[in-house]
Design a protein around this nucleic acid. Structure first.
Lengths: 105, 105
DNA sequence: CAGCATCCATATGGATACTG
DNA sequence: CAGTATCCATATGGATGCTG
């Protein structure tokens, strides 16, 4: 593979910008194939602050990896799902997990 | 795959700590299968500062992904190579590149 | 040549209180 | 319930100068 690392917009750097974040991959992996509400998501990802969860979700929505559906109800209800592109990240994440399982670093 | 995201030391979080950095994967990919000197490495990875390159190399050596060989010469000469574990990251990186190539996000 | 030390700007991210 | 807003601590990272 002949990739020019110098280029700030090379595919590797662009992908790393997505997966590099501390939380994005955890969020994607947690949503996975299901539909999940904001509150449950927050409970699942122990350690994340509200600010981070919201901002990362917004980031992922903007990038087209996550789809957000709001219901006009009181109390509010918001559901998150992965888009088709988002789902394509799942095998990548699984490879990362596999690597982590194989090595004690 | 049944991974507990809550655990700070789950395989996914651990792997993300490695690849999450802005530079680590670029360095690994740049070293690749060859032996490369510090200076050339620095020239290859446009945009990285000396401080970052040194600290990230140290990090990767500590983690066992990179091997460093210093020569007792004047002027100094230091060669970096990937360890076997480090080389196992190459397919992961290639998948990241592939993902970047496939999607315009 | 390789790499350390220092200073400093900015980014990241946590805690808390508040709102529709 | 699902966010926003604000304040603040720390981490990240760049520039520069120096050294064996």
């Amino acid at each position: 593979m002949n990739i020019n690392i110098s280029d700030e917009h090379c595919p590797l750097r662009r992908t790393l910008e997505i997966i590099g974040g501390k939380w994005t991959m955890l969020i994607i992996f947690q949503i996975n194939e299901r539909t999940i509400r904001y509150g449950e998501l927050k409970r699942c990802i122990v350690g994340i602050s509200e600010k981070m969860l919201i901002s990362q979700l917004k980031f992922l929505c903007d990038k087209g990896f996550v789809h957000k559906k709001s219901f006009a109800e009181i109390p509010p209800k918001v559901e998150y799902t992965l888009t088709d592109i988002g789902k394509e990240l799942l095998p990548v994440i699984n490879q990362l997990i596999q690597f982590g399982l194989n090595h004690k670093f």
